[in-house]
Each structure stands twice: as structure tokens, then as C-alpha cells.
């Protein structure tokens, strides 16, 4: 796939098993996420959704992290 065809979506829109590269945060208060390793340019993978559909489990830097859709809604990801 050529670079231009890669879509940018919100993290909350990614299906299970999908990988993407963090592009940007749509909110400013994201220091905690960055410190936990979700820095722009880093690969993240959606591992699963909780039984009730929220929160989302993702894999980043080799470990597993849970975040709410509310937060995932504000993270732009380029699909791999």
C-alpha cells in the first residue's frame, strides 16, 4: 500500500487486531499517555474491547494498557 492511501482514523474506530501509528492527540492533556509510551510515531495495536464495549485494551511498547473510548476518541492514528 502506498503511503498516501493509509487512512488516519481515531483510535476508538480501530477494529480488534488492527495496528496503527500514533499521529496526534486531539486534546492537550495527554501527558500521562505520552509518558506511558504512547508518543507520536509509536505503533499501537487494539487487542480487545471490554465485555461491555468500553474500555479498550491496547498493546503499546510491548505491554497492555486499558483506556476508555472517551480518551481513544481523541487520539489520531494512521492505520498500518
Amino acid at each position: 500500500m502506498s503511503k498516501s492511501k493509509r487512512q488516519t482514523v481515531l483510535l476508538s474506530q480501530m477494529p480488534v487486531g488492527q495496528q496503527g501509528i500514533v499521529q496526534d492527540f486531539v486534546f492537550d492533556d495527554c501527558e500521562r499517555l505520552e509518558e506511558m509510551g504512547m508518543t507520536p510515531g509509536e505503533t499501537v495495536e487494539v487487542v480487545r474491547y471490554a465485555p461491555l464495549g468500553d474500555p479498550i485494551e491496547i498493546k503499546v511498547r510491548g505491554y497492555f494498557l486499558s483506556l476508555r473510548k472517551q480518551e481513544a476518541d481523541r487520539i489520531k492514528v494512521k492505520i498500518l
Binding site: 499517555l33 497492555f64 483506556l67
Partner: peptide
């Protein structure tokens, strides 16, 4: 609280 970021490690 101002919408806190809810993130939790799944160890």
C-alpha cells in the same frame, strides 16, 4: 475533576 485521563496497565 477535570475529565481525568483514565488509563490502567493490564499487567
Amino acid at each position: 475533576s477535570q475529565k481525568p485521563i483514565f488509563i490502567m496497565e493490564l499487567p
